[in-house]
Amino acid sequence: MIQNRPAPRWLRELAHGRDAYEELLGWPVSVQVGDRVLIVLIGSSIAAITMPATLGAAVREELSVAMQNGPVLTDPDCLKWTFLTRPPDCLRPGVAACLAREHVDLAPRGSQVVVPTTPTRRPTPVGTAWRWIDPPAPARPRPPAYPVIAITRHLTEHAHLAA
């Protein structure tokens, strides 16, 4: 005999979070059941730039001054920050390699990035979940990738010159 049981709470939370991302932001978010996370597809509407948290904090500060800030999330251990932006049309040859030397990764088209369970900021203990540094806002579009890349390059080049 088949017995219907309600879905586990974690699965209901992920499904609700996925719905919130799609309804509020129009983001292509999916549930990855095996890892119990939400993922966003990197492609024609969303780009992701991941860097060490210390560099991310400096980039975020500069973006804020330039009024180019957007959604920023951190991994459970707060070691890496990811900036979600509009995708760049094209990058000059060598830019991605230059950034990679600084441990800055541009997520390739077709890859996936984990996002927090909800598109709003919610307190979670460090080491337990992905969370927002700056959550997305429905009325505010993601900034272009170019300011994030330019500020990151400026800060890392400046650090090398000072060393």
Score class of each variant (00 low, 15 high):
3 Q>I: 14
3 Q>P: 00
5 R>H: 10
5 R>S: 11
7 A>T: 08
8 P>A: 05
8 P>C: 01
9 R>I: 08
9 R>D: 15
10 W>Q: 06
12 R>I: 11
17 G>Y: 01
19 D>F: 10
23 E>K: 06
24 L>D: 15
24 L>P: 00
24 L>I: 00
27 W>A: 15
29 V>Y: 07
31 V>I: 09
33 V>R: 11
34 G>C: 01
34 G>A: 12
35 D>C: 00
40 V>W: 02
41 L>M: 10
44 S>M: 06
45 S>V: 15
45 S>Y: 07
46 I>D: 06
48 A>I: 11
48 A>F: 10
48 A>R: 06
50 T>H: 04
50 T>C: 07
52 P>F: 12
53 A>C: 08
55 L>V: 11
56 G>T: 08
57 A>H: 03
58 A>L: 15
58 A>S: 15
58 A>H: 13
59 V>Q: 01
59 V>R: 01
60 R>V: 01
61 E>D: 15
63 L>W: 03
65 V>D: 11
65 V>H: 12
67 M>H: 12
70 G>K: 03
73 L>K: 05
74 T>P: 00
76 P>G: 10
79 L>Y: 11
80 K>A: 14
81 W>K: 02
81 W>E: 14
82 T>M: 06
84 L>M: 13
85 T>N: 08
86 R>K: 09
90 C>I: 10
92 R>F: 04
93 P>I: 09
94 G>M: 05
94 G>A: 09
95 V>A: 05
95 V>E: 11
97 A>V: 06
99 L>I: 04
99 L>F: 11
100 A>P: 00
101 R>S: 14
103 H>A: 13
106 L>A: 04
109 R>W: 05
109 R>Q: 12
112 Q>C: 10
112 Q>Y: 14
112 Q>D: 05
113 V>F: 01
113 V>D: 03
114 V>W: 01
118 T>K: 00
120 T>N: 09
121 R>P: 00
121 R>D: 11
122 R>W: 12
123 P>W: 13
127 G>A: 09
128 T>R: 12
129 A>W: 01
129 A>R: 10
129 A>G: 03
130 W>G: 01
132 W>L: 01
132 W>Q: 01
133 I>E: 12
133 I>F: 06
134 D>I: 12
135 P>W: 02
136 P>T: 07
137 A>L: 14
142 R>A: 15
142 R>M: 15
146 Y>L: 13
147 P>N: 04
150 A>W: 03
151 I>V: 14
153 R>Y: 00
153 R>M: 15
155 L>E: 07
155 L>Y: 05
157 E>W: 02
159 A>Y: 09
160 H>G: 08
160 H>M: 11
162 A>D: 14
162 A>F: 07
162 A>R: 13
